[in-house]
Design a protein around this nucleic acid. Structure first.
Length: 760
DNA sequence: ATACACGCGCTTTTT
DNA sequence: GCGCGTGTAT
C-alpha cells in the first residue's frame, strides 16, 4: 500500500498505481479525477523514482494546470517544480520557442490571436481581391482553422477543394501561411500543427522529447482534436506510458474540432490498454445525479454507464418557468437573497447559460440588488482596446516583423499616419520583398543619407508623409534598444511617457480614466513577470539533473506568451466571494454548491443552430449534462416564455431535455402571473410550433391602442401573428407581435399601417 | 487625416 | 443592441 492511495477508493487507487503502458481512465463527473491525477504524479515521483521533469501532464486550461501544480506541490513540495505541466498550447509554445528554428520558426515569434487572425485574413482579402461581402472572412478563417486541426496544409486543401468557396479558402490559406512565415508569427492552431511539423521534420528533436518524457498524462481527453492526438501519440511512442483521463459524456468541443473518437477508440489504438472506470460521485446529491443521469442516458449510441453516490438525496431540482428573461433574472436574485439570509455566501452560487448574451439580464438584476458577482467571459482584460494597443508595442519590440502589431501601433495615438500612408508603405515593402519594419529602417537610412547604396531609387514617399514614419521608427528603435536592458515594467512606463498615452486616453472620452487604470494594471502585471522570470531560472537550477532550458525566455517573451494564451476560464477565481456568471462551456471542471442554469429552452439549449444536426444535438445534451453535474447541493433550472434577443422578443418552448429528467426529482414553480404573456404563449402554440419572431415598434399617435394582447393580426408582408403585448410607452404606443417564421425584425413596422386585425 | 454618423449583419460555445 | 465598414464633414 502506498502513501498516495490512502483514502482513495479501489478504482481510484488502481488508476494511481497502474503506471506501465497505456491507461484510459473514464471518470464521471465528481469522481475525484483531479485527485487521481495528482496522486498518480506524486506516486510516480515518490514511489517509483521517476524524475518530475520526466513527466508531462497536459490540461485543458491554464487554470487547471495551476491548480494541479498547487496540489502536486502540496504532495511533493519543491520537487514538483520541474514537472512539465500546462495546456497543449502553452507546452507547444515552449517547444517551438526552443526548437522551432529547425522549421524556420524564430524564437521570438508572435502569437496571433483570434482578432489578429481575422485582421490578417481581411487584409489578404483585399490583396487578393476577394469581396468580404461575398465570402465571410470569419467563415474562411474557420475553414482554415478546421483544415489545420485536421492536419491539412494549404497545398492539400487546394488539391481537395471541391467548391468555389473552398477554392477561395485555398488561395487565402496559402497566402495566410506565407504571411505568418514572413512575419515570424504563428496562430493558435499553428502552435500545435507547427509542433507536429517540427516532430515530423526533425527526428532528432522528436527523439529528444520522447527520451525526456517517460510519462505522459492528458486530462479532458474527450476534448482533444486530431492534432493533439497525434502529438501525444508521437511523444509516447516507444514506452507508451500514456495515461489519458476523460469522459465521453462531457465532450463539448466538437465545434472546435475535438474528436470524441480519440477517447472512444483509445483501447483499439493502444493495444493492452488498462481501462479504469471511476463511477462513484462525491460531488452531488442523489436527486441532482438522477437528473443528470436522466438527461445523459437519453443520448443515443452511448454505452450505458453507471454513476452512483453515497451522498444524501437532497432537495428536489427546481424547474422555474419565468415570464421573460427579466423574470428569470429576478428569480435568481430572489433565491440568492434568501440563501444569503440563511448563511450561504455569494461564492456558493453560479449562474450558467448557453450564450454570453444571456448574462446581461442577470447582471443588471445583480447590480440592482447589490450582490457581488463576477462575470466570466465578456471582454477579457487583454482584449480591451487600450491593453491591446500597449501589447502591440511590446509584441513589436519583441518581433518587429509582426505586421499586425505594427499596423496597430503605428498610428496609436494618432500621429498622422493614416490608411493611405500605411498602404503606400505596405506596397513599397512588398515590392522590395521585405517586412514593413525593414522598409521603415531603409527609409530612415535613406533620410540620414547613410546608406544611399541600399536603395536603387528613393522611397516613393514624399517628405511630408515620411516625417511621421521616421519619428515612429526612431521611437521603435529606441524602445527595442531599451528592452535589452530594462525590465518589462520599466519599458512599458517609458513607452507610456514617450507616446503620451495617458493624455491620449483621457482626451478620448469619458471612460478615459478607466482605460488609464487598465494601462496601469498592465504595468503592474508586467512587473510581476520580471520577478517571475527570475523564479523560473532559480527553480531550474534546483535540480541539477533536470535539463536546463536551452533558451532562457526573457521576461518580455514570457509575458507576451502568457498574454496570448490566457483564457476566460483561467480567470475564474473561486476564492473570491462572489456569484459566478459563466457559460456552460467555461464551467466545465468547476463545481458550486448552488447552480442555476438559465434558458433551458428550445432554440437556446439545444441551441437553434444545432437543431438540424443530430451530432450537434447530442453535444447540446452533453453540455446540459455538464452544467447539471456542476451542482453540489442545489440545482435550479429555468426557462422563460419570452426572451429579449437582438432588441426584439422571441418565444421558446421549454427544452426537450427537461422531459428526460425524472419528474420525481423535480419541483416546478411558476411566477408567470402575467396573464398577457401566458395567454399569448398559449395562443402562439395554436399557431403552430414554428419558431416565432416579434416586433416592437413605437409609433407616435398611431392607432396602436386599437390592439390588445391576444388579438390575431395579419401583416401585409409577414402573414398571421398574435399580439403579445400592447402598452403605452412614453408618448408612443408599443405593440409586440409574434409571427410565424423568422425574419429581419427591425425593418418590420415603421407604422401600424400594414397590420390589421383578423376577426375570428 | 481624423472624427463622427449611419447601416448592416450577426455570435453558440474558446485554447 | 453592438461592432465594423463605409461615407461624409471638418
Amino acid at each position: 500500500m502506498s502513501n498516495f492511495t490512502e483514502g482513495l477508493n479501489p478504482r481510484q487507487a488502481e488508476a494511481v498505481t497502474a503506471v506501465r503502458g497505456p491507461v484510459l481512465i473514464l471518470a464521471g463527473p465528481g469522481s475525484g479525477k483531479t485527485r487521481v491525477i495528482t496522486h498518480r504524479i506524486a506516486y510516480l515521483v515518490a514511489e517509483r523514482g521517476v524524475k518530475p521533469w520526466r513527466i508531462m501532464a497536459v490540461t485543458f486550461t491554464n487554470k487547471a494546470a495551476r491548480e494541479m501544480r498547487e496540489r502536486v506541490d502540496a504532495l511533493l513540495g519543491e520537487a514538483a517544480h520541474s514537472l512539465t505541466l500546462g495546456t497543449f498550447h502553452a507546452i507547444c509554445a515552449r517547444i517551438l520557442r526552443v526548437d522551432g528554428g529547425a522549421i524556420g520558426v524564430d524564437r521570438n515569434f508572435s502569437i496571433y490571436d483570434d482578432g489578429d487572425q481575422l485582421g490578417l485574413v481581411k487584409r489578404i482579402f483585399s490583396e487578393l481581391g476577394v469581396d468580404p461581402k461575398q465570402f465571410n472572412p470569419r467563415a474562411v478563417l474557420g475553414a482554415i482553422s478546421r483544415a489545420k486541426n485536421e492536419l491539412r496544409d494549404a497545398e492539400e486543401f487546394a488539391r481537395a477543394a471541391g467548391s468555389y468557396f473552398e477554392e477561395v479558402v485555398a488561395r487565402v490559406y496559402r497566402r495566410y501561411q506565407e504571411r505568418l512565415h514572413a512575419e515570424n508569427a504563428v496562430d493558435f492552431d499553428d502552435l500545435l500543427t507547427r509542433t507536429v511539423d517540427l516532430f515530423a521534420g526533425s527526428p532528432e528533436v522528436l527523439a529528444k522529447y520522447q527520451q525526456r518524457y517517460e510519462h505522459v498524462l492528458v486530462d479532458e481527453f474527450q476534448d482533444t482534436n486530431v492534432v493533439q492526438y497525434v502529438l501525444v501519440r508521437d511523444l509516447a511512442r516507444g514506452h507508451n506510458n500514456l495515461c489519458v483521463v476523460g469522459d465521453p459524456d462531457q465532450s463539448i468541443y466538437r465545434w472546435r474540432s475535438a474528436d470524441i473518437r480519440n477517447i472512444l477508440n483509445f483501447e483499439q489504438d493502444f493495444p493492452n490498454t488498462k481501462v479504469v472506470l471511476l463511477e462513484q460521485n462525491y460531488r452531488s446529491t442523489g436527486t441532482i445525479l438522477e437528473a443528470a443521469q436522466g438527461v445523459i442516458s437519453a443520448a443515443d449510441g452511448r454505452p450505458e454507464k453507471g454513476l452512483w453516490t453515497e451522498n444524501e438525496q437532497g432537495l428536489p431540482v427546481t424547474v422555474f418557468e419565468a415570464q421573460d428573461d427579466e423574470g428569470e433574472a429576478a428569480y435568481v436574485v430572489r433565491e440568492i437573497m434568501n440563501g444569503l439570509r440563511s448563511g450561504q455566501r455569494p461564492g456558493d452560487y453560479a449562474v450558467m447559460y448557453r450564450t454570453n448574451a444571456q448574462s446581461r439580464a442577470v447582471e443588471e438584476a445583480l447590480v440592482r440588488s447589490g450582490i457581488r458577482y463576477r462575470l466570466i467571459g465578456g471582454t477579457r482584460f487583454y482584449d480591451r482596446r487600450e491593453v491591446k494597443d500597449l501589447v502591440a508595442y511590446l509584441r513589436l519590440i519583441n518581433n518587429p516583423r509582426d505586421s499586425v502589431s505594427l499596423a496597430r501601433a503605428i498610428n496609436t495615438p494618432p500621429r498622422g499616419i493614416g490608411a493611405g500612408t500605411l498602404n503606400e508603405l505596405s506596397v513599397w515593402a512588398s515590392e522590395l520583398g521585405v517586412p514593413m519594419y525593414h522598409a521603415l529602417q531603409l527609409l530612415l537610412a535613406h533620410d540620414q543619407g547613410a546608406a544611399d547604396g541600399a536603395l536603387d531609387r528613393p522611397p516613393p514617399l514624399n517628405s511630408r508623409t515620411a516625417r511621421p514614419l521616421l519619428r515612429f521608427i526612431m521611437l521603435l528603435n529606441d524602445l527595442i534598444e531599451l528592452a535589452q536592458r530594462e525590465p518589462v515594467a520599466d519599458l512599458l512606463k517609458e513607452l507610456l511617457e514617450r507616446i503620451d498615452y495617458r493624455r491620449f486616453l483621457l482626451d478620448g472620452g469619458d471612460d478615459g480614466e478607466d482605460r488609464w487604470a487598465n494601462a496601469e494594471e498592465l504595468v503592474n502585471l508586467a512587473s510581476q513577470y520580471d520577478a517571475e522570470a527570475l523564479d523560473v531560472a532559480r527553480d531550474l537550477d534546483a535540480d541539477d539533473e533536470a535539463p536546463k532550458e536551452e533558451v532562457q525566455r526573457t521576461a518580455l517573451a514570457a509575458f507576451l506568451e502568457d498574454v496570448a494564451l490566457v483564457s476566460d476560464a483561467d480567470e475564474v477565481d473561486q476564492r473570491q466571494d462572489a456569484v459566478t456568471l459563466i457559460t456552460l462551456h467555461a464551467a466545465k471542471g468547476l463545481e458550486f454548491p448552488v447552480v442555476f442554469i438559465l434558458g433551458v429552452e428550445e432554440n437556446l439549449l439545444p441551441h437553434v443552430r444545432s437543431l438540424e444536426d443530430p451530432e450537434q444535438m447530442q453535444e447540446e445534451r452533453r453540455l446540459f449534462y455538464v452544467g447539471i453535474t456542476r451542482a453540489r447541493e442545489r440545482l435550479h433550472l429555468s426557462h422563460a416564455m419570452r426572451r429579449a434577443t437582438w432588441g426584439t422578443s422571441s418565444f421558446n418552448d421549454p427544452s426537450r431535455f427537461l422531459r428526460d429528467i425524472p419528474p420525481a426529482v423535480t419541483t416546478t414553480r411558476s411566477r408567470a402571473e402575467g396573464h398577457v404573456v401566458n395567454r399569448a404563449a398559449a395562443l402562439r402554440r395554436q399557431l403552430s410550433a414554428a419558431p416565432t419572431a416579434a416586433i416592437a415598434p413605437a409609433a407616435k399617435g398611431q392607432a396602436g391602442a386599437a390592439f390588445q394582447p391576444g388579438d390575431r393580426v395579419r401583416h401585409a408582408k409577414f402573414g398571421e401573428g398574435i399580439v403579445v403585448n400592447a402598452a403605452p410607452r412614453g408618448e408612443d404606443f408599443e405593440v409586440t407581435v409574434a409571427f410565424k417564421g423568422n425574419f429581419g425584425v427591425k425593418k418590420l413596422l415603421q407604422s401600424f399601417a400594414p397590420l390589421e386585425k383578423v376577426v375570428a
